[in-house]
Design a protein around this nucleic acid. Sequence first.
DNA 1: TGGTCCGGTCGATCTCGTCCACTCCATGAG
DNA 2: CTCATGGAGTGGACGAGATCGACCGGACCA
Lengths: 157, 157
Amino acid sequence: MDEIDRTIVNLLRTDGRTSYAELARRVGLTAPSVQDRVVKLERNGVIAGYKAVIDSEAIGLGITALIGIIPDNSADHLDICERLRAIPQIESCYFLAGVECYQLKVRVPKMADLEQLIHRVGAIPGVAQTRTTITLSTKWEDRPQPIPEDGGLDGVG
Amino acid sequence: MDEIDRTIVNLLRTDGRTSYAELARRVGLTAPSVQDRVVKLERNGVIAGYKAVIDSEAIGLGITALIGIIPDNSADHLDICERLRAIPQIESCYFLAGVECYQLKVRVPKMADLEQLIHRVGAIPGVAQTRTTITLSTKWEDRPQPIPEDGGLDGVG
DNA sequence: TGGTCCGGTCGATCTCGTCCACTCCATGAG
DNA sequence: CTCATGGAGTGGACGAGATCGACCGGACCA
């Protein structure tokens, strides 16, 4: 994980469809060697995949909400996690240190769908309470930040 | 935005580097017509871009936290938003309906960096209080969900 | 009936991805 | 010092993909 790798990662993070040829021009290497580096970054898990960024509103998922989950004493976290995973509307799921042990980011087309979703989450065994906050607007999301100098615990592979 | 467009979007959302030729095979069209559709989806803003998914831990950003911001009465939201935007560690920023008017998702290498970041956010004029929650683990993040049938308010273009 | 638009196909051409053989250089053993 | 070794990069060759223009057929409308 040297300066060139960081540059490659940053370029791909900004535009995941950048061709090897273009990456090669940017970092001053040839396409095959850049490809070699990218493959290694993928294998080491630094690059976990590639995604098109979709405008949620444009595909009819205009409502975004954050749902916090407060568990009861009997809560089986593994079970809760699995049941949450089965709900497709949950885009992200974090396990937290706090009263609310999970926070979910969900997207739905209409308020009625959100209501139904909240009921479904609240009905999971071990969930004592949920706390939902509507997002009025997303200022930005998944903005790439610079990679720290010492970035890369190389020792993965 | 028909069934074919939805399939294309779903494929690209799962693997943003899928070639036009491959997309064409999947949806039963030829490469040029698929490319045509993708270009239109990009122009309509349905596809907002492409990103490599990077493992934060692998690049030295091992700590993820959520920071809620409670404003005071004098808060100038535009100003707060701009000052937040200038902080690179803030990966996502949502404007919320609730006591906490913003929620930030941040990533830092070390606890010391988080502490410093919290002080920086807390020092922004109009910020009365912050509430930070450490994420112990990310169960999943940015998982694509199926596009609703009526998805696509076409009327964009 | 005929014109026009939209979306698709086909074929040609250029670029890109990918494989392989070779080079260069740093390292370490004899 | 010399030689083997392995990692990283280069250059060429070839197949696959991207991209452009010309053409085709159905829907719509005067």
